[in-house]
Simulated assay, not measured.
Amino acid sequence: MQAFDQIQELWQKHEVEVKFSADEMLQQAKKEVNGLKFKSALNIIGMAASFIAIAALWIFFHFDSWTTHVGISITIITIGIYTLILYRDYRLIAKTDFTAHPQEYLNNLKTYQLNRYKLYNSLYWFYTVALSTGIFFYFIEILSHFNLVQKIIAIGLTFLWILFCSTILRRAVIKREKERIALLIEKFERISGQISAPEKF
């Protein structure tokens, strides 16, 4: 047992440094950035599709109550604003080439990280409250056509969906994105350090 403890102590003191070339690290980081860009683009497409679907509903269906028009207006404006915010953040990571402007890209990535933090915190609650308000006004007319059981099911499912998105789903997305972006920033900082460091002979 003493021999094992000694081996373990020696192993802990021994530092193993695995060196990757800057090109290998850059290729890996670019692959991760492409994945991040693809996911961001999918989010934008999904939000744009929701905007178009709700706008089409508003144009092609006849609603009698003014509350329905108010509800759809609030929902469309909210989705539109959120889509523009997502597009602004997407441009931060898509417009600059790291190899041409490494420091600018790093700054953009850090701004993107900060924007995502705001998006999933203060801006998210604005989005949730505005969307819930829009749904509330929309439901005033729509629920009048339902019986009591259907009303309870519709309100209950809507409430549970908003609750799920605001708690479990939101926390999981925040954790995953936070780790992913922090790791990317660290990788690009290491690549910058390797590129800018003078070669030792």
Results as ranks from 00 to 15, higher is better:
125 W>C: 08
180 R>H: 14
198 P>S: 04
81 I>L: 12
50 S>K: 08
58 W>E: 03
2 Q>C: 08
139 F>L: 14
12 Q>C: 09
193 G>S: 09
35 G>R: 02
162 I>F: 04
88 R>F: 08
152 I>H: 04
115 N>C: 13
113 Q>G: 03
104 E>A: 10
135 I>F: 07
11 W>I: 04
196 S>G: 05
78 T>F: 03
153 I>Q: 05
4 F>W: 11
100 A>E: 15
167 T>I: 05
75 T>K: 12
22 A>N: 09
19 K>D: 07
115 N>I: 09
37 K>G: 06
1 M>C: 11
168 I>E: 12
65 S>T: 10
28 Q>N: 15
140 I>E: 11
87 Y>L: 09
167 T>M: 03
8 Q>F: 03
125 W>D: 11
196 S>K: 15
60 F>D: 09
20 F>I: 08
62 H>L: 07
78 T>N: 13
165 C>L: 09
50 S>A: 15
163 L>V: 07
167 T>N: 10
121 N>K: 10
164 F>G: 07
140 I>H: 08
130 A>Y: 00
200 K>D: 11
35 G>F: 09
5 D>H: 07
192 S>P: 00
11 W>S: 00
25 M>P: 00
138 Y>R: 02
11 W>E: 04
72 I>R: 02
69 H>S: 13
25 M>K: 01
57 L>K: 04
92 L>H: 04
83 T>I: 10
115 N>A: 10
196 S>Q: 13
34 N>P: 00
182 A>I: 02
48 A>W: 00
199 E>H: 10
64 D>V: 03
32 E>Q: 15
92 L>N: 04
177 E>S: 02
122 S>Q: 13
148 L>V: 13
159 F>G: 05
